[in-house]
Amino acid sequence: MKEIKAFIRPNKVNEIVHRLIDNGFENITISSAEGTGKLQDENAFVSRKFSVTDSLIAKIEMVINNNEVEKVVNIISEYLRTLNPGDGILYVSDVERAFRVKTNLENGEE
């Protein structure tokens, strides 16, 4: 299993999530966050909450099967890409084990 973390522009969240759902990926976590950048974007601002951040971002997190990584990365990349600074970044990490809390079953076992 793999975990995908995508740090993206907040205005792209709805479009990307709808594309992922349309392609059968329904288990998605979305968070609002702030990040540091190079202050190159004319719409960037200095945060009122944290003195070191300069831009709002959204984080999408998913755990998927190994064979689905390229499809998810391609969907997210296709709809994120503007060729401008701040398009986002994706991370793919190994997930050693996952447990369903309700049943204590491991790795999606039924």
Rank of each mutant, 00 (worst) to 15 (best):
K2A: 04
I4V: 09
K5S: 04
A6T: 02
A6L: 04
A6Q: 01
A6S: 07
A6F: 00
F7N: 00
F7T: 06
P10R: 03
P10T: 07
P10A: 04
N11G: 10
K12C: 00
K12R: 14
K12W: 03
V13F: 00
V13A: 03
V13W: 00
N14R: 12
E15R: 10
E15D: 10
I16Q: 05
H18P: 01
H18L: 11
L20S: 04
L20P: 05
I21T: 13
I21E: 15
D22P: 04
N23K: 15
F25G: 03
F25C: 04
F25K: 02
F25P: 05
E26S: 13
N27D: 05
S31C: 05
S31G: 07
S31T: 06
S32M: 09
S32K: 12
A33C: 14
E34S: 02
E34N: 03
G35I: 00
G35K: 00
T36Y: 08
G37H: 13
G37I: 06
G37W: 14
L39T: 13
L39C: 12
L39E: 12
Q40N: 15
E42K: 15
N43S: 15
A44R: 01
A44D: 15
V46G: 11
S47K: 13
S47Y: 06
R48E: 15
K49V: 10
K49I: 11
F50S: 13
F50R: 10
S51M: 13
S51A: 14
S51G: 11
S51E: 15
S51Y: 13
D54F: 07
S55P: 05
L56M: 11
L56Y: 14
L56P: 03
I57T: 08
I60Y: 08
E61R: 12
E61Y: 09
E61K: 13
M62S: 07
M62G: 04
V63N: 03
I64T: 07
N67F: 13
E68W: 03
E68A: 12
V69A: 14
E70M: 13
K71G: 06
V73K: 14
V73N: 12
N74F: 09
N74I: 01
I75P: 05
I75G: 02
S77R: 05
S77G: 14
E78C: 12
Y79W: 08
Y79R: 07
T82Y: 10
N84V: 10
G86F: 07
D87L: 04
D87T: 08
D87N: 04
D87C: 03
D87K: 02
G88I: 00
D94L: 04
D94Q: 07
E96K: 14
R97T: 08
R97G: 02
F99T: 14
R100H: 13
V101S: 12
V101D: 11
V101T: 05
V101H: 12
K102A: 11
K102R: 15
T103A: 01
T103F: 00
N104Y: 11
L105W: 01
L105T: 12
L105N: 12
N107V: 08
N107M: 06
N107S: 02
G108H: 08
G108V: 01
G108C: 03
E109S: 09
E109T: 04
E110D: 10
